[in-house]
Amino acid sequence: DHDVVPEDKFQETLHLKEKEGCPQAFHALLSWLLTQDSTAILDFWRVLFKDYNLERYGRLQPILDSFPKDVDLSQPRKGRKPPAVPKALVPPPRLPTKRKASEEARAAAPAALTPRGTASPGSQLKAKPPKKPESSAEQQRLPLGNGIQTMSASVQRAVAMSSGDVPGARGAVEGILIQQVFESGGSKKCIQVGGEFYTPSKFEDSGSGKNKARSSSGPKPLVRAKGAQGAAPGGGEARLGQQGSVPAPLALPSDPQLHQKNEDECAVCRDGGELICCDGCPRAFHLACLSPPLREIPSGTWRCSSCLQATVQEVQPRAEEPRPQEPPVETPLPPGLRSAGEEVRGPPGEPLAGMDTTLVYKHLPAPPSAAPLPGLDSSALHPLLCVGPEGQQNLAPGARCGVCGDGTDVLRCTHCAAAFHWRCHFPAGTSRPGTGLRCRSCSGDVTPAPVEGVLAPSPARLAPGPAKDDTASHEPALHRDDLESLLSEHTFDGILQWAIQSMARPAAPFPS
């Protein structure tokens, strides 16, 4: 592969990997390779389809078979030569091979799209000592099968071997295949498990690692696999990028399955594409389908809103127990993405979901129960707010008499603000006073009005108090039968009158 990737590009890729991570280095090298001529790309395919690569990765054979028959990708048995050289000459001794072996032994695996480039050397060096003999053996194999790289107009793939297949390693990572398949204008990513390549439709969760975000852009890794992070704060999961590491605690105790298979379609829109997988259930989501939507993949363990709600429900009964003089119970939860139609709101002032922060849900004790107040519409209280300059209440639009249902020339009671006709409430011909108009209920007259088809109010509507207090003497005590009587009149003013009279009014101040 030294004929494909020059030394300066190799060093530039290593520097970019240390600065921005393996995914960015892979993407940059792939983009550079696509700008080369067809001879360089053909050399790339020839390096990929060597015999030892085909033996190690069985899924490469179907890719090789898909090439046109007129494309010669065979390799000479006596060494490598550029395709432009007409004579089959043995190339001179390859010093770059020693360079590659020494550099890969030092860096474990470079971040390139060629056999030198995919593992994360920093994480491997940190986690190597417990498994040094086995990992050293794996390093000797890295130059042979560490990076199976493929690129063409139909298929483009980048393979990364790992030393996680050490025997006896619980939940060992089998390997990473960062794979971009450009077929019919689409893009897919796969993962390699035990020599087999699994596409998103049959993606397997190998051991402790999972394909957290099938994305090839942005600074985030394709698999949430930063070796420096180790395990999740809650004892979460091992990262795919942690090559040759000792077994780590796999999943939280509440995880239903340690080796679950995540779905390959969004649980909201039932469509495929780039998904984020939940650590607590097999569901996966688009970032845009979450509520609120996320802009980037959160670091650490992530769970959907259903799993978060289940966790909150487990903690909430203990938080609601009476604990005198104790601060509110704080339950730190990872930043969760909410699927459509589901929402768990945190306290005000918290950062938005999706940031690399930890939301704190506070379970406050329930407030003391209070008697429910009568629910009145805002339009129902409008007549009470229509007060004239002299303190006389004006008529609201649409006000109707509670007896006849007519809204023409209605009066407004100064005591309960109900609309009424003087002739309907006082049919006996009582003279109307000039000021202080009161309806039949507030004036103490319980004589029913002779209106055909309208039920008369119940005599129990009024329960006047002592006459010594004029204001308190007109406080009506309405009961269920009074409400039914008012409802039978089918008037809004009657219902409003009952609601206003049912509310307690402050006692009249004593004259000074």
Rank of each mutant, 00 (worst) to 15 (best):
Q242W: 15
L250Q: 07
A251L: 10
P253D: 04
D264R: 03
E265Q: 12
A267K: 11
A267S: 09
D271C: 13
D271F: 02
G272T: 14
G273I: 04
E274P: 02
E274N: 14
D279K: 03
D279C: 11
G280V: 13
G280F: 12
A284H: 11
L290R: 12
E296A: 11
E296G: 09
E296F: 15
I297S: 07
P298E: 09
S299R: 10
G300K: 13
S305L: 10
Q313H: 14
E314F: 13
P317S: 09
R318N: 15
A319H: 08
R323G: 11
Q325M: 12
E326C: 11
P327H: 11
G336W: 09
G341V: 11
R345H: 09
P348N: 11
P348V: 12
G349Q: 13
P351G: 15
A353D: 07
G354P: 03
M355N: 05
V360L: 13
P365N: 05
A366K: 07
L373V: 08
L373P: 09
P374S: 13
P374M: 15
G375N: 06
D377R: 04
S378F: 15
S378M: 14
L381P: 07
L385R: 06
C386W: 13
G391H: 03
G391R: 10
Q392L: 12
A396C: 07
G398H: 14
A399N: 00
C401V: 03
G402N: 09
G405V: 11
D409M: 02
V410E: 12
R412K: 12
T414S: 13
A417T: 05
A428C: 08
A428Q: 09
G429N: 14
S431F: 07
T435E: 04
C439K: 02
R440E: 12
R440V: 03
S443H: 05
V446H: 12
E452V: 09
L455R: 06
P459M: 15
R461L: 04
L462K: 07
A467D: 13
K468R: 11
A472Y: 15
A477S: 09
A477K: 02
L478G: 07
H479G: 06
D481V: 03
D481H: 05
H490G: 15
D493P: 00
I495A: 01
L496M: 00
L496I: 12
A499V: 08
I500D: 05
A504R: 01
A504K: 03
R505G: 05
A507K: 02
A508W: 03
